[in-house]
């Protein structure tokens, strides 16, 4: 009897917290489906009986969300690919090759983790201006095309490959490039995938840097685009929120698709612990 009361209480708490957590998202969806006047109406409408979907097409075209999302996809995909490429190459050198100054160079890679991008914006902004990259894709991509954390994670992962695999590949006449493409990459795809998701999300969610180096709608990423959108009139809040939902949707989808991998990672850690 006491345990069932406890379980019921637990559910009550769970439901209350779930409602509090979901409430802002729920109201954002509801208000995106109301007209501007309905949002301002009191008492407030908590359920859209006659949803108006045109706010989404207005946000897409009039609010430039289509352009912003395109820019964000281009920037995030290219940044991820570039960071993956530079990290895989450097990680391979640190894991499988011997060369002078190796330790110092690896320490320098780790040292970049100590320097957040926020600290170096002032000279970096000037560099972008000198290179003539203001308002261009390279300004948004190139500074993040190398990643200290990427090199570190992939090098750790590469080093876990059995030594015999390398020896066998050498016996088979594999050079370093063939060994990298045929053996190292396929066997490390879990870590490569994890780093790719991480790199994509960090690029997608950037705010300060894109705000500094772009000022035209054609090169604004979606996060900075939301800043433009926020400035609309109060009676256009349905468009603002529709745009915000469109901006969040790709990440919700990515996390939903990769949820199983994330959960598997967590439970694998739990079993080991």
């Amino acid at each position: 009897m006491r345990t069932s009361v406890r379980t019921a209480l637990r559910y009550v708490f769970l439901i209350i917290i779930a409602l509090v957590v979901l409430f802002p998202i729920y109201i954002a969806v509801v208000n995106s489906l109301l007209s501007g006047q309905q949002i301002a109406h009191r008492p407030p409408t908590l359920f859209p009986l006659h949803p108006l979907w045109n706010s989404f097409s207005l946000a897409w075209s009039f609010g430039h969300l289509g352009t912003y999302l395109r820019t964000s996809v281009i920037v995030s995909v290219l940044t991820t690919l570039a960071a993956l490429t530079t990290s895989v190459l450097a990680a391979y050198a640190f894991a499988f090759l011997e060369f002078p100054l190796k330790r110092i160079m690896f320490s320098l890679c780790l040292a970049t983790l100590m320097v957040p991008a926020e600290v170096t914006i002032i000279p970096n902004f000037r560099t972008i201006q000198i290179l003539g990259w203001y308002n261009t894709y390279p300004a948004l991509i190139i500074p993040f095309a190398a990643s200290g954390i990427g090199i570190f994670l992939l090098r750790q992962s590469f080093r876990q490959l059995p030594r015999e695999l390398h020896d066998a590949a050498v016996l088979d006449g594999y050079g370093h490039w063939r060994f990298l493409v045929r053996v190292v990459l396929p066997l490390n795809r879990a870590m490569i995938g994890a780093f790719a998701i991480f790199a994509f999300l960090s690029s997608w969610n950037q705010y300060l840097w894109p705000l500094l180096v772009t000022n035209s709608d054609s090169h604004r990423t979606v996060q900075v685009g939301l800043r433009q959108l926020e400035g609309l009139n109060p009676d256009q809040q349905n468009i603002v929120l529709a745009g915000t939902i469109l901006a969040a949707l790709p990440i919700f989808l990515i996390l939903f698709i990769f949820q199983r991998q994330l959960v598997r990672g967590l439970t694998a850690g739990a079993v080991k612990g």
Binding site: L97, E98, F99
Partner: peptide
């Protein structure tokens, strides 16, 4: 060694 430097060069130029 030459190969190693070629491989870490792109990341180091950006750093």
């Amino acid at each position: 060694s030459a190969l190693a430097y070629v491989m870490i060069l792109p990341a180091f130029v950006i750093f």
